[in-house]
Design a protein around this nucleic acid. Structure first.
Length: 464
RNA sequence: UCCCCUGUAGCUCAAUUGGUAGAGCGAGCGGCUGUUAACCGCUAGGUUGCUGGUUCGAGUCCAGCCGGGGGAGCCA
C-alpha cells in the first residue's frame, strides 16, 4: 500500500485520496459525530488534522480510545478544512491502530507542557515532541548545509581517526581505549600498567581533535575538512559543553589567518541562509516559542560583516569600557567569558573575530607573529554562545615549530610525522574547529547544548 | 573541580513559627461542542530523592550520599 508523508500531504490540493502513517499528537471528540486527531510523522513542524466520522467501523471500539503517542494508519481523502487553523485536513475512511500506548496515565510524553530538564530523562521519547522534532530536522539541515558549502568550494571530506595513539593532540583530558583487564592489568618493571600489552601496543585514546591528522591531507589535497565525533573527558558542567560532540574542522593550504577568518565568516553565513530557506517551518517555531527575534538575528548576521579585532585592541576596548568586570583585564591573560560576552553582546552586538593572541596562552602549533609575542590565532564569538569557532594559521617553519615545542616542554619525537610536513614542501596553511552543537544551539536559540544532540554525554550522564 | 539554588502525584508547582499532603495540567468516566492550549462535572493517583540524626511530632531543622538547574574554569 502506498502512502505519503505529512509534509507532502499538507502541500497537496484537496480532492486526492491519501494514506498516512504516524503518531497521534492529540485527539478531540465532538458529539456531533466525529473526532479530530492531530497526526505527526516527523516530516514537518505542523501535524495534519484527521477527521474521523463516527460511522467508522472501529469508531467506538478503537478511535475514541486513541491517546497521545498511539501509532495509526489512516486512509482518507484530502479535503478543504471547515475549521480554522489549517487549510487542508484528511477525512478518514479507515483508521487502523498499529500500536497502542500501554498506560496513557503514565506515558512520559503526554500532551502537556514538559520542561526540557524532564524530557532529557526520557530522551528516547522526546523526539516525538514538536521542539525536539524541530531540533532533529534542523540538525540534519545544518549538517547537509556544511557539506554543501565545502563541496561547492571544492573541499574534500576526510575521515580522520576516532581512536588515536598519539598522546600529542593538544590539551584536554582524553578517554582511554583499552582491552586490558582493568581489574588486573599487566605490569611493567616499574610497577605501572604495561600498555605494550594493550591492543594497540601502546596507550590509545578517543580523539579530541582531527586537526593534526587533517593537516596531512591538507598538505596534499589543498582544501579539506573533517566532520566527526570528538571526545573530551573534561569534568565540564555547563550548558555549552559535552563529553561527546561533533566538530567541523576545515584546513586550507596556501592560506593565512585572514583567509581562515574569511572562510569561517562565509561558512556561517552560508549555513544560516541555507537553514532559513530549507527549514522555514521549524525556524518560525523557534522564533515564536524558543527565542523571539531569532530569525531577525540570523538575518542580521547574514547581512553584516563580522568584526576583526586583534586581541591587543580588544584589551584596550575592555579597559576603556568603564564596565566593572569580576576578573581584571590584563594583556597576556586569556579573556574571561564575561569579557567575550561584553564584546559580542553589548559593545559590538554582532559576531566578533578576535585574532593574534599572546603566544603563552595558545597551542604550540599556532604560527608565531613577527612581534614574537603573539600568534596567528582566532576565536569567533557570537552573542549568546560565546566561542563558537577556534582556529589559527599553523606554524609552517620547522625551526620555529621546534622552538615552540621545546619551550612548552613537549615530546618532540612524538610529533615526527607532524614535523615531516614542515620538512617536505611546507606551505602556509590554516584551519579552525567549529563545534557543531554550538552551531545548532545558536541557530535554534536552544539554551542548553544537551538539548541539541539526540543522546547527550556529559559527566555522570551516559543513559540511553 | 569550585560557588549558588533545587528534589513533594505521570508532569509543573503549593503546604504559615516543625503539628500529620493540596492545586493546575495530564489520565479515566460522563456531559457539551467542526474541535484545535477546547470547555463543564465526577474519579483515581503520594514510603515528600536515599540513609542516618534532633524532636512528643519532620515535606519543613541538621549531616552524609545521589540526581537536576544556573554560574565559573577547561574549551568547540
Amino acid at each position: 500500500m502506498s502512502w505519503i508523508r505529512v509534509d507532502q500531504a499538507l502541500a497537496k490540493s484537496p480532492g486526492e485520496p491519501v494514506t498516512l502513517k504516524g503518531w497521534v499528537r492529540t485527539r478531540r471528540d465532538s458529539k456531533a459525530g466525529l473526532s479530530f486527531i492531530n497526526l505527526h510523522d516527523g516530516t514537518c513542524q505542523d501535524p495534519i488534522q484527521v477527521v474521523a466520522p463516527s460511522d467508522l467501523a472501529n469508531y467506538e471500539s478503537e478511535v475514541q480510545k486513541l491517546t497521545t503517542g498511539c501509532a495509526i494508519e489512516v486512509d482518507g481523502e484530502l479535503v478543504e478544512s471547515k475549521g480554522k487553523g489549517q487549510s487542508v485536513e484528511v477525512k478518514a475512511s479507515a483508521i487502523r491502530v498499529v500500536g497502542w500506548v500501554e498506560d496513557p496515565d503514565t506515558y512520559p510524553a503526554s500532551a502537556k507542557r514538559h520542561t526540557f530538564e524532564y524530557l532529557r530523562e526520557v530522551a528516547h521519547l522526546r523526539p516525538r515532541t514538536n521542539t525536539f522534532g524541530a531540533v532533529a530536522r534542523v540538525r540534519h539541515a545544518l549538517s547537509l548545509a556544511v557539506h554543501r558549502f565545502f563541496d561547492e568550494r571544492e573541499f574534500y571530506y576526510v575521515h580522520t581517526p576516532i581512536i588515536t595513539a598519539n598522546d600529542c593532540e593538544g590539551a584536554g583530558q582524553m578517554f582511554r581505549v583499552s582491552t586490558l583487564d582493568a581489574m588486573n592489568p599487566p605490569r611493567n618493571e616499574a610497577g605501572g600498567v604495561d600498555f605494550n600489552e594493550d591492543f594497540f601496543g601502546k596507550e590509545a585514546h578517543l580523539t579530541v581533535s582531527g586537526q593534526l591528522s587533517v593537516e596531512t591531507y591538507c598538505c596534499a589535497l589543498s582544501r579539506v575538512y573533517t566532520f566527526g565525533p570528538t571526545f573530551r573527558a573534561e569534568n565540564s558542567n555547563t550548558s555549552r559543553h559535552l563529553s561527546e560532540f561533533w566538530m567541523i574542522e576545515p584546513e586550507i593550504a596556501f592560506a593565512d589567518l585572514a583567509d581562515n577568518a574569511q572562510l569561517a565568516e562565509d561558512m556561517l553565513k552560508f549555513v544560516f541562509k541555507d537553514l532559513l530557506e530549507r527549514r522555514a517551518d521549524d525556524m518560525a517555531f523557534f522564533d515564536k516559542r524558543i527565542q523571539p527575534g531569532l530569525i531577525e538575528n540570523l538575518t542580521h548576521i547574514i547581512e553584516s560583516d563580522f568584526l576583526r579585532l586583534p586581541y591587543t585592541e580588544a584589551i584596550d576596548v575592555l579597559k576603556k569600557s568603564g564596565k566593572k568586570f569580576e576578573f581584571p583585564v590584563e594583556w597576556g591573560t586569556d579573556l574571561q567569558s564575561e569579557h567575550e560576552r561584553f564584546l559580542t553582546e553589548e559593545h559590538y552586538k554582532r559576531p566578533v573575530i578576535l585574532t593574534d593572541y599572546p603566544k603563552d596562552i595558545k597551542a604550540f602549533y599556532m604560527r608565531l607573529n613577527d612581534d614574537e609575542k603573539t600568534v596567528a590565532a582566532m576565536d569567533v564569538l557570537v552573542p549568546g554562545i560565546g566561542e563558537i569557532i577556534g582556529g589559527s594559521q599553523r606554524e609552517e617553519r620547522l625551526d620555529v615549530l621546534d622552538r615552540r615545542i621545546d619551550e612548552m616542554g613537549l615530546p618532540k619525537d612524538e610529533y615526527w610525522w607532524y614535523r615531516d610536513l614542515r620538512r617536505y614542501g611546507t606551505v602556509p596553511h590554516a584551519g579552525f574547529g567549529l563545534g557543531f552543537e554550538r552551531l545548532v544551539q545558536f541557530s535554534t536559540g536552544m539554551g542548553n547544548i544537551r538539548d541539541v544532540i539526540p543522546f547527550p554525554r556529559a559527566p555522570k550522564q551516559a543513559e540511553f
